[in-house]
Design a protein around this nucleic acid. Structure first.
Length: 346
DNA sequence: TCGTTAATAT
DNA sequence: CATATTAACG
């Protein structure tokens, strides 16, 4: 069923530096926030792949700027509240290690299998879709008709792929909050990734915790080959979060990003798509190596409108598996359902 | 309602 | 088999 829809969208805001005053802090945050204009509309919103393919229609109205705006405001409000409550974690520069900043996360919507193919020039290669006997999804759009974007959202959401970037954000936020405050909702809010749900975060958090536990249990460190994603991220020093209300906690702060424009220097990171390979799985870390040897090209319609945003991206969909960046290949892909490989640059 | 944890799906 | 989603429970 779920065919693959890939989406990329973006929206993370970036923060920078620590500020002391709450007000100031907030102000900064606001600056960093995507703001309606920047937020940009996702290119496509997730739409049930099946529906899309069945009807060959492109997604709907997704979120209109208004929606985004609204969401943004909501987030902002929440964040404000949190900032006040959270006391202070001083936000600091974000990635000192990587030296990268957060990018807005982009959710890439791309359809692969079933999508809108109709136009496709030769896209005959339709992977065979299961006989559509009844696959046609009985449920059309009648039930709830809320043309609003919410409805669309409500419909089945494509499988979220935690790209390294997303995970990075996640880890950063968790580290920032401290174990105690790191709960799904808060994390989700701070990540400020559009399209990311509490459930998504909760699920990932679950895995993350298990990972940490494992790690901790097993002697020092040695990121097993497994946990590709986690292995690449620096473990937060789980410090017992202290701050409950007070003020500084012993936590180091992680920053949550702000307004910086990413310099698109020659680095080679652009927000684009590297769809090619790599979903996640890195044995060790990084380096971005995406050579473009990639073969698959999808158009990533990223509509990034952000000016300063950073972009990370969320990805849905399936993709072929990950190959190696360096030369290692993983052998496990028997039949991978789908994964989209986003671009990650951490 | 939210956060966890277990089960189920892909 | 790994990872993400859905269900169940406190």
């Amino acid at each position: 069923m779920g065919e693959e829809v890939k989406m990329t969208e973006c929206e993370i805001n970036d923060g920078e530096d620590n500020i002391n005053g709450d007000d100031e802090r907030i102000a900064v945050w606001e600056m960093g926030l995507p703001t309606p204009d920047d937020l940009t509309p996702l290119s496509q919103l997730l739409i049930p792949p099946e529906l899309a393919s069945a009807f060959s229609i492109c997604p709907e109205p997704h979120r209109t700027p208004l929606d985004v705006n609204r969401a943004s405001q909501t987030t902002l409000s929440n964040i404000r509240g949190q900032l006040n409550v959270l006391s202070s974690n001083n936000f600091k520069s974000f990635n000192e290690t990587t030296g990268q900043t957060h990018d807005p996360i982009v959710v890439d919507l791309d359809n692969k299998t079933g999508a809108v193919e109709r136009d496709g020039p030769g896209s005959e290669a339709r992977k065979l879709r299961r006989v559509d006997s009844e696959e046609a999804d009985s449920r059309t759009e009648n039930s709830a008709e809320d043309p609003s974007s919410e409805a669309a959202r409500a419909l089945k959401r494509p499988r979220l792929v935690w790209t390294p970037q997303l995970h990075k954000r996640f880890v950063d936020v968790v580290g920032h909050l401290g174990i105690k405050n790191a709960v799904p909702k808060t994390i989700m809010q701070l990540m400020n990734v559009e399209g990311l749900t509490r459930e998504n975060v909760a699920s990932h958090l679950q895995k993350y915790r298990l990972y940490l536990k494992r790690m901790q249990g097993l002697s020092s460190d040695g990121p097993s080959a497994s946990d590709q994603l986690f292995a690449s991220t620096p473990l937060p020093q789980s410090l017992p979060e202290s701050s409950g209300g007070g003020g500084g906690n012993g936590n180091f702060g992680m920053p949550i990003p702000m307004p910086y424009h990413h310099t698109a220097t020659a680095g080679g990171m652009m927000p684009m798509p590297v769809y090619g390979h790599m979903g996640m799985q890195m044995g060790n870390n990084n380096g971005h190596n995406n050579s473009s040897s990639g073969n698959h090209q999808h158009h990533q319609v990223s509509i990034n409108g952000h000016q300063n945003g950073y972009s990370g991206n969320i990805a849905y969909g399936h993709m072929f598996q990950q190959r190696d960046w360096n030369g290692n290949h993983y052998g496990s892909y028997t039949h991978h359902p789908h994964q989209v490989a986003p671009n990650d640059n951490m």
